[in-house]
């Protein structure tokens, strides 16, 4: 039996670049033009196999808190990976990538895996961000780079596969778990819930 490992992934990027569409496509293989991301979803989950482990992604959306640049530090806590999304048809959204990278450096964990996703690549004819430039930028910060289309289901699975591969396998599961815990309904005084 394979061990399930929960991995928190946080999404970053300007409003409207397709963060929620990417999650929605990945988790439910569904695309909606007008999906409102913030309908009570604390995070969405999907489990994928990776080597000898199962990776259960807990994908956190910004819940709109990025709109006025008011993401809380707790959003980044404990993330194994971050996906920074821009829209290939909007140069602005690429230019703000650097700000998101900076913010991630500041608030995110040190060993976080960073992926940059150029979304909406189905709209190649109105592209404003050359792939080469984005790729070079990603390389300069040692980030995964991929262009995606949530609408056409292009490279979404691949994005998360790439992340999975970059997550170092657990050497010793005992070491990883510290004794912090979440509060749950059924109090378990003897068996502490580890995370």
């Amino acid at each position: 039996k394979m061990a399930i490992r929960e991995l928190k992934v946080c999404l970053l990027g300007d409003t409207g670049v397709g963060k929620s569409s990417i999650v929605c496509r990945f988790v439910q293989d569904h695309f909606d033009h007008n999906i409102s991301p913030t309908i009570g979803a604390s995070f969405l989950t999907k489990t994928v196999p990776c080597g000898h482990e199962l990776h259960k992604f807990l994908i956190w959306d910004t819940a709109g808190q990025e709109r006025f640049h008011s993401l809380a530090p707790m959003y980044y806590r404990g993330s194994a990976a971050a996906v920074i999304v821009y829209d290939i048809t909007k140069l602005d959204s690429f230019q703000t990538l650097k700000k998101w990278v900076k913010e991630l450096k500041e608030h995110g964990p040190e060993d976080i895996v960073v992926a940059i996703a150029g979304n909406k690549n189905d709209l190649g004819d109105i592209r404003e961000v050359p792939m080469k430039e984005a790729k070079e930028f990603a390389e300069s910060i040692a980030a995964i780079f991929i262009e995606t289309s949530a609408r056409n289901a292009v490279n979404i699975e691949e994005l998360f596969q790439k992340i999975s591969k970059q997550i170092p396998p657990l050497e010793n599961p005992e070491v990883e778990s510290n004794d912090s815990f979440k509060l749950t309904r059924a109090p378990a005084p003897s068996t502490r819930r580890c995370c």
């Binding site: 604390s42 808190q65 709109r67 006025f68 809380a72």
Partner: peptide, 27 residues
């Protein structure tokens, strides 16, 4: 709370945002 109690208000703010609340710091 790991990272300090300052996390707790943030958690409630996230819950608010998740249900459509609009957040604006420096404002």
């Amino acid at each position: 709370p790991v990272y300090g109690l300052g996390e707790i208000p943030q958690c409630f703010c996230r819950m608010c945002a998740v249900f459509g609340g609009i957040y604006c710091l420096r404002h």
